[in-house]
Design a protein around this nucleic acid. Structure first.
Length: 590
RNA sequence: GGGUCGUUAGCUCAGUCGGUAGAGCACCGGGCUUUUAACCCGUUGGUCCUGGGUUCGAGCCCCAGACGGCCCA
């Protein structure tokens, strides 16, 4: 919605504009259809014959007339604001003349009167980065000799007006390119428009020949210029950019326009996801999509969001994890599946937690958790090679090396090492309770040995696991879906991967014994009845699937956001999620 | 949830002891035909986050709240 009404156009020129527009639309669209450009949806379409500046096809008397009508008006407006103050247009303009947004609307109004406000007839042919790589190394003389044509378009990021000649810097999706706009080359009228109607932040198209400036910068020497989109709001300060973190999250579009580093983060994220897909596709995993809305939330210990289906008159839960559905698929015979998608957890926000976040979960029949640790190492090395081009990355000032084999340590061993308590002592529930209380961990009555161990681990060990480390053998009590370890019945064949003190991955040999799974669910139900909001539901439907027989399977989930954080050296998840959840600012409720 | 820091022009930020609210960029006017965050000259622009309170007087002090950053849980 526009923030306020646009100034009313003059009736006469408005009708002209409409007529011109209609004519243009008709004449343009017919040849375009027959030319068959529909499938070509890329950022820049090639091969439009002389597409430039269709907004002004009537170059003869029409445009001269229009401009003739405009220029005196502008002068009268400014002048009268001060000197006469009596002409109505003059008054309006002087009222607005100090407000940048109003200035921009005034300029848009002028474009609208001419029917040139938001054209979509310009076809870019060249991206900045392509020009730079093809011609950036040529000498000034060679380039002048070659007479290379270029047609570029992008947002006006910098502008240097020197009387009758100017430089502007356009930014497109690939990067920046400078353009040289000279009155004697583009014509007096076009140059006047360029000076009077263009602002930083507008989107413009430029056609001309490539040149090198005296200082060696590759530049499009403009022959034609056109304003394609009037931006009604000023850009943030051109040197410092947009620094306010809240504004960057709430107005991500602005952040992306101004901050190259921010754009880079999301490009990296996309490459990460692409590389993951390739990794799993190459290994015969089937990509699937399972429900986001669950009748019973399951697959993780977390509080769900609740919603309501009106036609079915039933509550549904946004999924906290896709696990139980992916396992159904393994039962169904898809022996390798993966899903990259969102999960939702109704918990607090922090630099590591957004209520919706992305994971890749994958399951492989006839594999165990050790196979998955091997696979995870392979995946991480491949991702690093593709994205950072090596085996090490820098995160929060520390080098993190994924080159060497990632150590695998039992949780009890890690806790013993970190706390100095003998591993044997850690096997006693009573002893663990004392230790936990000694650490000021608020121990709750329902906690058994396993939960105590996990709490101590999280309080004392987790944050110190900077170099990549697998922690293995999680307690059964806190792993209701994982297979029991054959040797130690209190433990499971489960691991989590920690990097930079953060949990990155969680995997285990799956519990595929439906009878034991039923017992585990029953135990979770008891906890839920005692008030544990994160305990799992008893999922009879899932048990029914297990009863048909799930092959021995291992499964794992990896946090895509957290991995992106590592790869982009971002210390908060909000920097790697395009539109992170923030508290509302009040809005329309009281 | 607790602690702590912050919120001033469109943006980036100053603001002394409580005494007329500032700079740079952007915008507006003027100059400038190879500039580089162009430059030079002249203007304009404020709900000092909100609401109370103290005071002759509050951007500044006190209280409450909103939003955000960081730390802790």
């Amino acid at each position: 919605m526009p923030e306020r009404a646009l100034p009313a156009p003059e009736p006469g020129s408005s009708l002209q504009a409409v007529a011109r527009q209609a004519l243009r639309t008709r004449t343009r669209q017919a040849p375009r259809r027959t030319a068959g450009h529909r499938g070509c949806q890329g950022g820049h379409r090639l091969g439009q014959p002389d597409p430039l500046l269709r907004p002004r096809p009537v170059t003869g008397q029409g445009s001269a007339h229009r401009r003739g009508a405009l220029r005196p008006r502008q002068r009268a407006g400014r002048g009268s604001g001060r000197v006469h103050g009596s002409k109505p247009e003059g008054r309006r303009m002087s009222d607005d003349s100090r407000n940048e947004a109003e200035q921009r609307r005034r300029k848009l109004g002028e474009l609208r009167r001419r029917g040139e406000a938001y054209p979509n007839t310009f076809r870019r042919e060249d991206l900045a980065v392509d020009l730079a790589s093809a011609y950036g190394d040529m000498s000034k003389e060679a380039l002048a000799e070659a007479g290379v044509e270029a047609t570029v378009a992008g947002r006006v990021m910098l502008r240097r007006v020197m009387g009758k000649a100017s430089f502007i810097t356009l930014e497109d999706s690939s990067g920046r390119i400078q353009c040289y706009v000279r009155r004697d080359d583009v014509g007096e009228d076009a140059y006047a428009d360029f000076r009077n109607l263009w602002d930083l932040g507008d989107i413009a198209g430029v056609r001309g020949t490539l040149m090198k400036t005296n200082t060696g910068e590759l530049t499009v020497h403009a022959r034609k210029v056109g304003l394609l989109v009037k931006s009604l709001k000023p850009l943030p300060e051109k040197h410092h950019g947009l620094a306010d973190r809240e504004l960057r999250y709430r107005q991500r579009h602005l952040d992306l326009i101004v901050n190259e580093e921010s754009r880079q983060v999301f490009r990296t994220r996309a490459r990460l996801v692409t590389a993951m897909r390739r990794f799993f596709d190459e290994r015969g995993y089937l990509e699937v999509e399972t429900p986001m809305m669950h009748p019973i939330p399951g697959g993780a210990a977390a509080r769900p969001f609740v919603t309501h289906h009106n036609a079915l008159d039933t509550d549904l839960y946004l999924r906290v994890a896709p696990e139980l559905y992916l396992k159904r698929l393994v039962v169904g015979g898809f022996e390798r599946v993966y899903e990259i998608n969102r999960c939702f957890r109704n918990e607090g926000l922090s630099s590591r937690h957004n209520p919706e976040f992305t994971t890749v979960e994958f399951y492989q029949a006839f594999a165990d958790y050790v196979d998955l640790m091997d696979l995870t190492e392979e995946l991480l090395r491949e991702l690093l090679r593709d994205i950072v081009g090596g085996t090490t990355l820098t995160f929060e000032g520390r080098e993190i090396d994924f080159g060497p084999a990632i150590p695998r340590r039992r949780m009890t061993n890690a806790v013993a090492t970190e706390t100095g308590i003998a591993e044997d002592d850690l096997m006693s529930e009573a002893r663990l309770g004392e230790v936990a209380r000694g650490m000021n961990i608020p121990v709750e009555p329902g906690w058994g040995w396993g939960r105590l161990l996990l709490e101590i681990f999280e309080a004392r060990v987790e944050a110190n696991l900077i170099a990549p480390t697998f922690i293995t053998h999680y307690p059964v009590e806190v792993s209701p879906l994982a297979r029991k370890n054959a040797e130690y019945p209190r433990l499971t064949d489960r691991f989590e991967l920690f990097v930079a003190g953060r949990e990155i991955a969680n995997g285990f040999s799956e519990l595929n014994d439906p009878v034991e799974q039923a017992e585990r669910f029953a135990r979770q139900s008891e906890l839920k009845d005692r008030g544990d909001l994160e305990a799992m539901h008893y999922d009879n439907d899932f048990l029914g699937a297990l009863e048909h027989g799930m092959p021995p399977t291992a499964g794992e989930g990896i946090g895509v956001d957290r991995l992106t954080m590592l790869l982009t050296d971002s210390s908060t998840i909000r920097d790697v999620v395009l539109f992170p959840q923030l508290r509302g600012t009040g809005g329309d409720e009281s």
